[in-house]
C-alpha cells in the first residue's frame, strides 16, 4: 500500500468528493448541495493516495449539543487496509478534543459497517431519517 497523505480540517474539492461518492456507488448529489454541505462541515478528514482522494469522513452539527459523523467513505479498491478505521479514529479523536463533553455524536452506518462504528464507541439506538426527494 502506497503511503497515504492524511489531512485534517480541509474539505475535499467538490469534484473529487463527488467522484469518491460515485466510486462508492452512493446516490448522485447536486454539486451545489455538495458545495454547501462541505462548506458547513465542523471537521473533515481526508486521505489521499498521491493526488487521488481515496477516503474521507466529516463531522457536521451545531458544535455544541449534537454532531453527526457523515460521509465516511473509502474507495472500494482501498478497503480492508484499516483506512476507514483510521478516518473514524481521527474523527472521533477530534470530537473528543474539540466538542463539549455532553455533545451527542450520531451516525447512520450502512449495513455491514456496524462493527467499525461500534469499535469507535457508537452503540445502536433507535432513530429515524429520510431524504428529501
Amino acid at each position: 500500500m502506497s503511503a497515504l497523505t492524511w489531512k485534517e480540517g480541509d474539505t475535499p474539492i467538490v469534484g473529487e468528493f463527488l467522484e469518491l461518492r460515485q466510486s462508492c456507488e452512493l446516490d448522485r448529489l447536486n454539486a451545489g448541495a455538495a458545495a454547501k454541505g462541505l462548506a458547513g462541515s465542523l471537521h473533515c478528514v481526508t486521505a489521499k493516495s498521491g493526488v487521488r482522494l481515496v477516503a474521507m469522513g466529516r463531522i457536521v452539527g451545531d458544535g455544541g449539543m449534537a454532531a453527526m459523523l457523515v460521509d465516511l467513505m473509502v474507495e472500494p479498491n482501498m478497503r480492508g487496509q484499516g483506512i476507514g478505521r483510521e478516518v473514524m479514529e481521527r474523527l472521533v479523536a477530534w470530537c473528543r478534543e474539540e466538542l463539549p463533553r455532553s455533545c451527542s455524536i450520531s451516525a447512520i452506518p450502512v449495513p455491514g459497517s456496524y462493527s467499525l462504528y461500534k469499535g469507535a464507541g457508537f452503540e445502536i439506538r433507535g432513530g429515524m431519517a429520510f431524504s428529501l426527494p
Binding site: I13, V14, G15, L18, N30, A31, G32, A34, A35, K36
Partner: peptide, 11 residues
C-alpha cells in the same frame, strides 16, 4: 452551474 462548482469554482 453544477459543473462549474464541481470544477471548484465555488457556488
Amino acid at each position: 452551474e453544477d459543473l462549474l462548482i464541481t470544477a471548484d469554482m465555488g457556488v
